[in-house]
């Protein structure tokens, strides 16, 4: 330790993190700060609340509503399916590789948003997709039922492809934390399977579950690439509206609204992440 202490006296601790902090400041914190600042800036440089009013007004209300509903739907469905999958994968013992294969796949698939994902679904559930064609062969006209890959329900299915794996990653520690001895203790005291789940299992998993659902919500709310490529910008989501401002497709003079929309997105996503962190902290208290 003496050597470490000797060097410690030579250089202050913050010097070693300065390069990291400079990069973070220039390319993360400063742009984020610019968003906040310019959301409140009028075209002549003064302070204004007009941008915020427009961004939260009737013109963009639908975008926030659709983004919110899409995020909520994929977070809830992905959350439930992801939790069931996690429980199944963690408790099935027979194919040894199942758990590690599924968790490795999830690590990559949860990042597998974006362009390739959009085309994977065009190839399967698009109007000329293979699954669509197979369903037609057995007499189900998928697009005749009003379904479209570019519609709300289509986007829900596509988003689940990265939401379910993300939930598996989030839930694994909590599900692994359910100790067999707790179940044995409950059964020893005469509890039925239903009672075990109602009184022990579900209450213990609930904080991790809610934290996971909130994280999935933030994840879906922030996603841009998949929806943009899939629908060519025809679906009314907040990130796509922000994209229009960046591309300059919106009439000049009200660029501040783009910043206000971006600020709205940062606020929604940050709140969700904060709730997630608080709940995950609660989980780690009893799993460690």
């Amino acid at each position: 330790m003496e050597s470490g202490d000797r060097v410690k006296r030579r250089l202050p601790g913050w010097i070693g993190i300065a390069p990291f902090f400079i990069v973070a400041f220039l390319f993360l914190i400063w742009p984020a700060y610019a968003v906040v600042l310019q959301a409140f800036e009028s075209s002549d440089g003064g302070f204004t609340l007009d941008n915020i009013a427009t961004a939260t007004g009737p013109q963009y209300r639908d975008a926030f509503l659709t983004s919110g509903l899409l995020s909520l739907a994929t977070a809830l469905i992905g959350g439930v399916l992801g939790t069931l999958l996690t429980y199944a994968v963690c408790t099935l013992e027979r194919p040894r590789f199942l758990k590690s294969a599924m968790s490795t796949f999830s690590g990559v698939a949860s990042q597998f948003g974006g362009v390739p994902l959009a085309f994977a679904f065009v190839a399967s559930l698009g109007s000329a997709g293979l699954v669509t064609a197979l369903l037609a062969k057995i007499g189900i006209n998928l697009y005749g039922t009003g379904f479209s890959l570019l519609s709300f329900s289509g986007l829900v299915i596509v988003y689940l492809y990265f939401q379910i794996p993300l939930m598996l990653i989030v839930m694994t520690p909590a599900v692994e934390g359910l100790r067999a001895s707790w179940r044995e203790a409950a059964e020893g005291l005469g509890a039925s399977t239903f009672q075990y789940w109602a009184r022990v299992g579900i209450p213990l998993l609930t904080p991790a579950f809610i934290g996971g659902v909130v994280l999935l919500f933030a994840n879906a709310f922030a996603a841009y690439a998949t929806a943009q490529v899939l629908t060519s910008g025809s679906v009314n989501l907040v990130p796509i509206q922000i994209g229009f401002f960046v591309q300059g497709n919106v009439f000049a003079g009200n660029t501040g609204v783009g910043y206000a929309l971006a600020l709205g997105m940062i606020v929604v996503v940050s709140l969700a992440l904060l709730i997630n962190i608080l709940l995950q902290r609660r989980v780690s208290r009893w799993t460690s």
Binding site: L28, W30, P31, A32, Y33, A34, V35, F221, A222, Y224, P239, I242, G243, F245, V246, G258, Y259, A262, L263, M265, I266, V269
Partner: peptide, 9 residues
């Protein structure tokens, strides 16, 4: 700070 907001900032 989602990438899309990073871009506009």
């Amino acid at each position: 700070v989602p990438p899309i907001t990073l871009v506009i900032g």
